[in-house]
Design a protein around this nucleic acid. Structure first.
Length: 279
DNA sequence: GTCCATGTTCTTTA
DNA sequence: CTAAAGAACATGGA
């Protein structure tokens, strides 16, 4: 469900409901969605105050008043909400935390691809690549240089750049005019510059529209996003390209649906413009 | 019944 | 060995 813009929207809607609140008790935890499974989440959370909420890539990082931290990954179908006690507890609710204002933080995730990850005092820990909203084009270039994979696959790799998923990779490649099967290490400087700018423009616009709701994504207020209406290619197979009216194509790349405009995103670089020669 | 899904990680292959 | 491709995970909707 969530890529960077959706996770960012969840954080901005969730933070006012949580920051400064104290956790009275942990009422329900499904053990196998906590990593490491051995960690005593109940013991670690009870009595703590939530100091801050942040996003890193697709992770929602909770920092506690004792300096410990954990993060929640929404996976494909994860949802966070802060509900009054009379609100019915939906199926697949794996975490219920009672707050000091009587409300309850709840984590629901039917497919259980998401989870709760205890970090503790641990340092940066991660093998995640740079944040796409701030990455410099030359850093992206040096990372793309090291792989022969299709640029679509490279951008989906969270170690290479962290926060993009299937929707926003497709949208960014469209905006950059790059075919998804172009080899990552064969993009020239100009193309990587355009790609970097495109990624940032697409993500910022998506955040302004509160993310994309294709199936059931909602933010912490229960509100869907609106950016799906503005998609240029994702989930628009057969529909006319908004720029040139050519029907959008869907292919499978890396096992994932991949959408692009065959005319705006040519497989080969367009030939350099040249003055018409005579004779 | 079939296929597909906004993600990650483990296993297999080259 | 390493990089890349594929399968697996669990549930629900079309």
């Amino acid at each position: 469900m969530p890529e960077l813009p959706e996770v960012q929207t969840v954080v901005t809607t969730l933070a006012p409901k949580l920051v400064g609140r104290r956790i009275k008790s942990v009422v329900h935890v499904r053990g196998d969605i906590v990593d490491p499974q051995t960690c005593d989440l109940l013991g670690c959370l009870t009595g703590r105050k939530i100091k801050s909420l942040h996003r890193r890539a697709k992770r929602i990082i909770f920092t506690l008043d004792d300096g410990n931290a954990f993060y929640i990954h929404l996976g494909m179908t994860g949802r966070l909400s802060v509900d009054p006690p009379n609100e019915v507890i939906q199926p697949h609710t794996h975490l219920v935390v009672h707050l000091d204002n009587v409300r309850q933080l709840r984590f629901r995730d039917p497919r259980r691809f998401g989870g709760i990850f205890w970090v503790g005092h641990g340092a940066s820990d991660d093998s995640l690549g740079p944040e796409p909203l701030t990455v410099r084009w030359d850093e992206l270039r040096s990372r793309l240089r090291h792989t022969t994979r299709a640029v679509k696959n490279a951008l989906m790799d969270q170690r290479l750049i962290a926060g993009l998923g299937n929707i926003y990779v497709d949208e960014s490649l469209f905006r950059a005019g790059l075919h998804p099967l172009r080899r990552a290490d064969r993009l020239n400087d100009e193309e990587v510059k355009t790609l970097t700018r495109s990624i940032k423009a697409v993500l910022n616009k998506a955040i302004r529209h509160r993310g994309s709701t294709l199936r059931d994504y909602v933010d912490a207020d229960g509100a869907p996003g609106a950016f799906q209406k503005l998609h240029d290619v994702y989930d628009r197979e057969g529909l006319p390209c908004r720029r040139c009216t050519t029907p959008i194509k869907r292919i499978i790349v890396g096992g994932r649906s991949t959408h692009y405009c065959p005319s705006c995103q040519p497989r080969r670089r367009p030939p350099a413009r040249r003055i018409e020669q005579d004779s």
